[in-house]
Design a protein around this nucleic acid. Structure first.
Length: 307
DNA sequence: CTTTCCCGCCAGACC
DNA sequence: GGTCTGGCGGGAAAG
């Protein structure tokens, strides 16, 4: 193993439930489902029992486990699932306080992973940052409102129409292989409006406190995997005022996981049909030209590698 | 082979 | 100085 290779981590005793290729999709559909969560609780208990077989104590046993535990068992989606299983859908008025260190210890993962989960859940206002190292758990109490707001914002940004346009162009391209130029023109014509403005949609009454950076990379998949899917149940209520601002707390230009997650949910909420391809989502969320740039640099690096 | 995405380094914010 | 936060690249696993 070279000096720059990712070190292999000791196997952790995790779920050994047979994980299917569609597990992430299932996760998406069920992340906040109570039934599944109860099942998960049971599963976690089983896992705890299994933990008594400490893999670090017995190297042979550890290697054996390492083979059994695939990367799917360590996925962010599963982790988020386990996290959700620990908290009630509708917590009492007494705030459920979440300590990052405790959660990391309990779930037996690096602290870094908890930040990812918190960012996604925060984007849905299922948690909010209360202090350094601490979050408050809101569960689904604000979810309905949040989804309604996000849908409204998604409509405002004309995400639905944008998706239709992109899909149409993709279809056109299938009939016309020499359409590259036309395509670029079309992209230039497309009216993205405020879409390029970066923003974080706040929940009324929830103060946004975290400091963050502006560098960003699209980790859409991280967002999707952890988000509750019964989106359609919540979009009926109507909002007249949008708590969307690019000033004050939102002044930090933000392409963080938190914001990208919100935007992705918006796409789902306004999409018809309800399937959103990553390709289309990326074109809207990071911009068509940027997607093209990324592809180019990818080809370039591949070319250089093979040369 | 290409795509997905986990790991953890480390920059920058914050204290 | 220390700690917290989270963007990001590398590369292994999955497809």
């Amino acid at each position: 193993m070279g000096p720059f290779t990712t070190p292999k981590k000791r196997a952790e005793a995790g779920s050994v439930d047979p994980w299917t290729p569609t597990s992430n999709l299932k996760m998406l559909i069920s992340a906040a489902s109570r039934e599944i969560r109860n099942r998960e609780k049971k599963l976690c208990m089983d896992t705890d029992e299994r933990d008594s077989l400490d893999p670090t104590q017995d190297s042979e046993n550890g290697e054996e486990l390492e083979k059994i535990i695939s990367r799917k068992d360590k996925s962010l989606g599963l982790l988020c699932h386990k996290f959700l299983a620990r908290y009630p859908d509708y917590p009492d008025s007494a705030l459920a306080d979440i300590c990052l260190d405790d959660v990391a210890t309990q779930l037996n993962v690096e602290r870094r992973r908890i930040y990812d989960i918190m960012n996604v859940l925060e984007s849905l206002h299922m948690v909010s940052r209360s202090a350094k190292n601490r979050y408050s758990w809101h569960g689904r109490t604000k979810l309905g409102e949040t989804l309604a707001i996000l849908k409204h914002v998604g409509e405002k940004h004309r995400y639905g129409q944008q998706m239709q346009q992109i899909r149409q162009r993709i279809r056109d391209r299938e009939f016309d292989f020499n359409s590259e130029e036309k395509e670029n023109e079309a992209a230039a014509d497309m009216e993205f409006g405020e879409q390029k403005e970066l923003f974080f949609v706040e929940h009324p009454g929830v103060e946004f406190k975290a400091g963050e950076k502006q560098k960003g990379q699209l980790f859409i998949y991280k967002g999707i995997k952890c988000i509750s899917a019964d989106v359609k149940c919540y979009v009926s209520s109507v909002w007249t005022t949008l708590p969307v601002s690019s000033a004050s707390v939102n002044s930090r230009k933000d392409k963080s996981l938190r914001v990208m997650s919100q935007k992705f949910v918006m796409l789902f909420l306004v999409s018809n049909p309800r399937v959103v391809s990553l390709d289309v989502a990326a074109k809207i969320l990071i911009g068509e030209d940027h997607v093209a740039d990324q592809d180019k640099s990818k080809f370039k690096s591949k070319y250089l590698k093979s040369a």
